[in-house]
Design a protein around this nucleic acid. Structure first.
Lengths: 353, 353
DNA sequence: TAATAATATTGAATCGATTCAAAATCTCGA
DNA sequence: TCGAGATTTTGAATCGATTCAATATTATTA
């Protein structure tokens, strides 16, 4: 930076006008006489003044015109994880339309996250609560800015949140498989608790699982019950929502004497990993095994075969979140939006025996 | 927001200390006597003061601790496009380590983009110049903040930029195919000019193509020449770097009497689309057709088969860009970093005839 | 030409903090 | 008890703009 930083006051003085006029030249040019405007502009150019500094303007205006999206994850999460990306894309679309900027704020380290949240220059936050949601909410609350929680795992009604109807979505997924005729079904669950990998007993679901997978599970069970299939008859393989644990789970499932003809995956990410594993093993989808995901991420639409899934209304979630923050009109109650069953090519009737 | 917004001055008055002391309580707590500190903190709590406002602090400090990444693309580009995502992920990693925030700024609309760049609260910019780079640089210059251009298509040495050696990279890719024994090779080029779709004559490359694809092309040609293959013998199919145009290109290539045994794709994105098309058509990669991409995006490592490619040093690019901006030590010359040939499963020797 | 209306310009207050030289207070040894 | 030195606290200046009531200037009308 050049030593003598030029500010509006300098330009005003050099041009022989008041600071107020100089300010108007830049922010409301129509209000100042053309002759004066030109003079000021010329002086500004000569002095190398680059226009009003955002920081000063900001302080006065009190509004940043940007929203922060926060998660207890590394920064790369936003560009890596399919679900986060779907959401970010949708949020981006809404922000594009309203000329709002996006700042991504995150950190694995608790202390750092607090600092990042406190120093982010935004008008409000959208919280991605997949993990450590409670702490994230607490931190954000202190900042005293409007915020809205997504994928919130807890029931606290005082937290403004937008959710999805995971139970209904799970039921829709399972019902789809059941209607196709599948009776030998396995579940690929997701979570970030080390204890819930490998075969998980149904009794452990309620006490140990986080809200999102738990609800999806109950949706599955609900539909299965409609067809008279008891919980015990459907193996649950827990994954850490990553490739290695998914592969382990698949190996366990398909090394059994009676491998499933269909898989209920709690996320598209896991479903896609599973589908790859099946392809590598020479098992054909959907001929040998049907698989249905959850979330409706874009990758699911372009995989081979294209993945049947239960899609979240990302655009709707984004629209509501952004407007809620921008207009400071936070929802009073926890809304649970509907999911949509999207049938593609990864599900079909089971082979006849 | 409650009507009466509490500021530091209010807390100071209520606690009966000077504003300076109150400020210290929050920003340099060690300098103020414990008793006083507690008193101020208590008053702050009672008044519902949420800590120093970032905007005020910012104005004083002059430093935002965030960098902006800008592109002439919709906001969704950052979360959608594989190349942009690879870069963002790498930038995210560097920023994570240094506690720096990221703001994504973009707009398709020129006017809006100018506004967004001017009002982004950042200490500097990383410019993704894939498209409209020149204009983007011009806009950013006016902001008078440090910036660095990536994938810059123009030669202007006064623009701080970090590039990659596209010629050498292209040559490495072509050489790999040639060494495997391929002699019947086709090229899938990329660009955003409508005129360059479909079959492109070699003579049109230099005058019409943007810098990046042009350099890669020259790399290809260089290696082909080493093996005595003239430019005319290698068909160039132009794509718009999207799926539809890639499919059209592939159809043209494989409807010919003598379809290629290997494909040089100018990006992984296009290579992946091509590979999908081949799979759908029942053509096996690499047995029937070999294909090599360009860029080294993560999807290339997890595709089926895994894609051979020429990888950009994303981490290195990110590291240099971020530190250059944070330390305001912009590179004097245009650096061209090396690419790395990553051999995976999508390339093999051609079938014997 | 005087009175009135319309348009431009000014100047000081404000936004919400941090900073730092100077003043006040405290500590401790002689 | 005094004073040097260390520790705290103060208060005003500063960061870089915007805003708005008051004033000055110009244009219009009777």
């Amino acid at each position: 930076m050049g030593k003598g930083h030029v500010r509006l006051a300098d330009v005003a003085k050099a041009a022989g006008v008041s600071q107020g006029t100089a300010s108007n030249v830049f922010s409301r040019p129509d209000v100042v006489r053309e002759e004066v405007r030109e003079r000021v502009l010329n002086v500004a150019r000569e002095l190398g003044y680059g226009g009003p500094d955002v920081k000063g303007r900001l302080l006065r205006a009190g509004r940043v015109n940007a929203i922060g999206v926060a998660a207890v994850e590394p920064l790369t999460y936003f560009f890596d994880d399919p679900w986060a990306r779907s959401l970010m894309t949708a949020i981006g679309e809404v922000c594009d339309a309203s000329g709002t900027g996006i700042a991504v704020v995150s950190a694995m380290n608790e202390e750092r996250l607090a600092w990042n949240i406190n120093s982010a220059l935004v008008d409000g936050f959208i919280l991605l609560c997949v993990e450590g949601g409670e702490r994230l909410v607490e931190l954000t609350r202190q900042r005293q800015l409007p915020f809205i929680a997504l994928a919130l795992g807890i029931e606290d009604e005082t937290i403004p949140a937008i959710g999805i109807d995971n139970v209904a979505g799970g039921a829709a997924a399972a019902r789809h498989l059941l209607e196709l005729g599948h009776r030998n079904i396995a579940i690929l669950s997701i979570g970030d608790v080390d204890g819930l990998v490998g075969l998980v007993a149904p009794a452990r679901v309620d006490p140990e699982m986080e809200a999102t997978p738990r609800d999806r599970m109950h949706g599955y069970w609900q539909a299965l019950a409609e067809y008279g299939i008891p919980r015990d008859a459907v193996p649950i393989q827990g994954t850490l929502h990553d490739r290695p644990s998914t592969i382990t789970a698949m190996e366990a499932l398909f090394s059994s004497a009676n491998p499933p003809t269909a898989i209920l995956a709690m996320s598209d990410k896991v479903a896609l990993f599973a589908m790859q594993w099946l392809a590598e093993r020479g098992l054909k989808v959907p001929e040998d095994v049907s698989i249905i995901g959850f979330d409706g991420v874009p990758e699911a639409a372009t995989s081979l075969p294209r993945l049947t899934t239960v899609a979240q209304p990302f655009a709707e979630i984004a629209r509501r979140s952004v407007t809620a923050i921008l207009e400071n009109a936070l929802p009073e109650d926890h809304e649970a939006l509907d999911l949509e069953l999207v049938v593609r090519d990864s599900t079909a009737a089971p082979r006849l025996r």
